[in-house]
Nucleic acid binder design. Structure first.
Length: 328
DNA sequence: GATCCGTGGTG
DNA sequence: TCACCAAGGAT
């Protein structure tokens, strides 16, 4: 018995769908990817939203689509341009895979984005969640999604624990097959805005009458991994409208091929021009930035300031260049 | 199946 | 301040 036992009747599921969708129609946030059914635009949004908050995606989404308005445009782009547009969003492998998938669509699918969840799975970067999200939103295929939001909502609503292996079946049984895209987004919207990870705001919940826990159920969470603290000194060297940067090795595990400020050889102890904190994966960095005279080491390159926006900079590098007004 | 991949907001 | 973590996927 896969379905949560509080949704055993078709009538109960129907009421739930009606309430959830009515709430979503009124309270759903106006987001740019909700104003289109263009599968390309839906696809880009789903990749950007992987493990990334809506607020962090909005700016990048608009700029990315302006620069790469179609799957053909993306397929023809240089990878460095794609990474530059992704700079600051993190998880850069998403951008490389999106780019590779666009090329695959252009060359092996005659430029047509596959229109079923099953076929979408053949594209790099598209797993079970993303395939179902695109298929349901862009093509109205009745396939449910399970993301962190949906998992939490289902766990709280169910009167019995839901095994990991039954999550997808549970979501599928609950799905409104007539409006799969809206239903999936409504479930995620509920989790993102009301059924919050910490303390849920049940008084605002449109489906609290169908909920077994009313927010009392604690959602188990894994103990966080130990974070490392490190510090680094970077140098900011400019001459003749150019800045000294280095490119990370293409063989690097972390952010391969992306550009950053060179390290500042330790020694002279003086006040840095800029201090900042930056967390990256599992390390919390304390960064000191020193302006200094030109002294080029191997592997460092002069880059015209006018080209910075076109380079795949690491997020930290973008942050520093913006704080120092060298980048818009 | 555990681990890795980035970043910025949040309480 | 600091731990947590957000519309996952690949390996």
């Amino acid at each position: 018995m896969a379905a949560a036992s509080n949704f055993k009747s078709a009538r109960a599921r129907s009421r739930f769908r009606q309430k959830l969708l009515a709430w979503y129609g009124v309270n759903g946030r106006a987001l740019p990817w909700r104003e289109t059914r263009d599968p390309y635009r839906i696809w880009v949004s789903e990749i950007m939203l992987q493990q990334t908050r809506v607020a962090a995606v909005l700016d990048h989404y608009r700029r990315f689509l302006k620069q790469f308005p179609s799957v053909q445009a993306l397929a023809q782009a240089q990878e460095s341009a794609v990474l530059a547009a992704w700079s600051g969003l993190g998880y850069y492998r998403r951008a490389r895979m999106l780019h590779a998938a666009a090329k695959k669509v252009a060359h092996e699918y005659a430029g047509q984005i596959p229109d079923s969840a099953e076929a979408l799975r053949n594209l790099p970067g598209i797993g079970r969640y993303t395939a179902n999200a695109i298929a349901s939103i862009a093509f109205a295929e009745p396939v449910a999604v399970v993301d962190g939001n949906v998992e939490r909502v289902l766990a709280r609503m169910s009167e019995v624990p839901i095994a990991q292996s039954e999550l997808w079946t549970t979501a599928q049984n609950l799905l409104d097959p007539a409006r799969p895209g809206d239903f999936n987004q409504a479930m995620m919207e509920l989790g993102a805005t009301i059924c919050l990870p910490g303390v849920p705001e049940c008084h605002r919940c449109p489906v609290k009458s169908a909920c077994c826990s009313r927010g009392q159920k604690l959602v188990a969470r894994t103990p966080g991994a130990q974070r490392l603290r490190k510090s680094a000194s970077l140098k900011l060297v400019m001459r003749n409208g150019k800045i000294l940067l280095r490119q990370r090795p293409t063989s690097a595990q972390l952010m391969p091929g992306m550009w950053e400020l060179p390290e500042y050889a330790r020694g002279i102890r003086r006040q840095p021009q800029l201090r900042l904190k930056h967390s990256i994966t599992s390390t919390d960095w304390s960064i000191n930035v020193y302006t200094c005279r030109a002294s080029v080491s191997s592997g460092e390159t002069w880059v015209p300031l006018s080209q910075l926006a076109r380079l795949p900079l690491t997020g930290l590098t973008r942050k520093i260049l913006r704080r120092t007004n060298l980048l818009a």
